[in-house]
Amino acid sequence: MEVRTIKVFTTVDNINLHTQVVDMSMTYGQQFGPTYLDGADVTKIKPHNSHEGKTFYVLPNDDTLRVEAFEYYHTTDPSFLGRYMSALNHTKKWKYPQVNGLTSIKWADNNCYLATALLTLQQIELKFNPPALQDAYYRARAGEAANFCALILAYCNKTVGELGDVRETMSYLFQHANLDSCKRVLNVVCKTCGQQQTTLKGVEAVMYMGTLSYEQFKKGVQIPCTCGKQATKYLVQQESPFVMMSAPPAQYELKHGTFTCASEYTGNYQCGHYKHITSKETLYCIDGALLTKSSEYKGPITDVFYKENSYTTTIK
């Protein structure tokens, strides 16, 4: 009895394709271990004539594949690729409408935090270190965002349907971005203890939790000093293409032309909904596939993004 075979390709990165001759009487799992086709788990399936010449994702289970996976995804987590594939199996079914010149995501599976993050990423200057993220990001900007969303979920250790947080998501993504040249110098002034300067680099240099107003941050924000008295913390120097200011959701007025974009969060910790506000020729609110415009805006804002380049204080 002759062994019926077909020729397929296996890959971990969709760049390096490895030619395989597979036995049609055995499952993919018996031949390769966990195997995925377009995100779908085909591990328990036997090869079919229609699979001839198709590319299958496999887990990096030998040295060659491990090197290829690390170079593309910059992670050695053995569960990463499987999590990416199972997320992709959902995100490829989502709709990605162009809204006001940006790629958004039609609401499904509690994905409003991903839509808000995706919209924000198209408006701030950011370059990702893992080629996987950078490639998928370019495709997302062009309207094909399924891979990018699935990668975000995998890097953030999230599953489809789980509630997510924009600030946490951005923080994970910033860790995989090139923020080497970003720098922030802060000064804390206390009447009792004097003053202390701190220099922050990388992710810490672009994120701040405690106030939404970048102007206020430049002037000074009140913080408790270690001595128990009130101290003032203010920005001395900022070198970065953008800054992200966050605070627990509270009524906040966004003035046209003073910011790049913002995240609105309605609801409580267990259950809520994100919308995205962007400042173009007027203010726009993007909620999944829905767009509304207004000249002014007041609502429960939790993150505001500002364009920056270089700032030095005039406070002496």
Score class of each variant (00 low, 15 high):
2 E>P: 12
4 R>A: 12
8 V>F: 02
8 V>S: 01
9 F>T: 09
9 F>D: 05
10 T>P: 00
11 T>S: 06
11 T>K: 02
13 D>K: 00
16 N>G: 07
16 N>W: 03
21 V>D: 15
21 V>M: 13
23 D>H: 09
23 D>V: 12
24 M>L: 15
28 Y>A: 00
30 Q>D: 10
31 Q>R: 12
32 F>T: 15
33 G>V: 00
35 T>G: 00
38 D>P: 03
39 G>A: 14
40 A>G: 11
47 P>N: 06
48 H>M: 09
48 H>Y: 12
49 N>W: 15
49 N>M: 05
50 S>A: 10
51 H>R: 01
51 H>T: 00
53 G>H: 10
54 K>G: 07
55 T>F: 03
55 T>K: 08
58 V>R: 11
60 P>H: 07
60 P>R: 08
61 N>R: 15
68 E>H: 06
68 E>A: 07
68 E>Y: 06
69 A>D: 07
73 Y>S: 00
74 H>I: 00
75 T>R: 03
76 T>Y: 11
80 F>S: 01
80 F>P: 00
82 G>E: 12
82 G>K: 06
83 R>D: 00
84 Y>P: 02
89 N>D: 14
90 H>L: 11
92 K>M: 08
93 K>S: 11
98 Q>A: 09
98 Q>R: 10
101 G>A: 02
102 L>R: 00
103 T>G: 02
104 S>L: 05
106 K>F: 14
106 K>T: 10
107 W>R: 15
117 A>M: 12
123 Q>E: 10
125 E>Y: 00
130 P>K: 02
131 P>G: 03
132 A>T: 02
134 Q>W: 03
134 Q>L: 06
136 A>F: 03
138 Y>A: 09
139 R>M: 07
142 A>Y: 10
142 A>E: 11
147 N>S: 14
149 C>W: 06
151 L>H: 01
152 I>P: 00
156 C>G: 06
162 E>T: 15
164 G>D: 01
164 G>E: 00
164 G>W: 04
165 D>A: 15
167 R>K: 09
167 R>S: 12
174 F>N: 01
175 Q>Y: 05
175 Q>I: 04
176 H>F: 11
177 A>C: 15
181 S>N: 11
183 K>F: 07
185 V>K: 08
185 V>F: 03
185 V>A: 06
190 C>Y: 01
190 C>F: 03
193 C>S: 05
196 Q>D: 09
196 Q>A: 11
197 Q>C: 13
198 T>K: 07
200 L>T: 10
200 L>N: 09
203 V>W: 13
204 E>I: 01
207 M>L: 12
208 Y>E: 14
209 M>D: 12
210 G>D: 02
214 Y>L: 09
214 Y>Q: 08
215 E>T: 13
217 F>N: 08
218 K>Q: 14
218 K>S: 04
218 K>D: 05
220 G>I: 02
220 G>N: 08
221 V>E: 07
223 I>R: 06
227 C>S: 04
227 C>A: 05
227 C>F: 05
228 G>L: 06
228 G>T: 06
229 K>C: 14
231 A>I: 03
232 T>E: 09
234 Y>P: 08
237 Q>C: 05
241 P>S: 15
241 P>W: 01
245 M>D: 06
247 A>S: 13
248 P>C: 15
249 P>V: 14
252 Y>C: 11
252 Y>D: 03
255 K>Q: 07
255 K>E: 03
256 H>T: 10
257 G>S: 04
259 F>N: 09
260 T>F: 06
264 E>Y: 01
268 N>K: 12
271 C>P: 14
276 H>R: 06
280 K>A: 13
283 L>V: 12
287 D>F: 00
290 L>E: 10
291 L>A: 14
295 S>Y: 14
296 E>Y: 14
297 Y>E: 05
297 Y>N: 03
297 Y>A: 07
299 G>T: 04
300 P>G: 09
302 T>C: 14
303 D>A: 12
303 D>I: 07
304 V>F: 04
306 Y>I: 06
306 Y>E: 03
310 S>I: 13
311 Y>P: 08
311 Y>C: 08
315 I>Q: 15
315 I>Y: 15
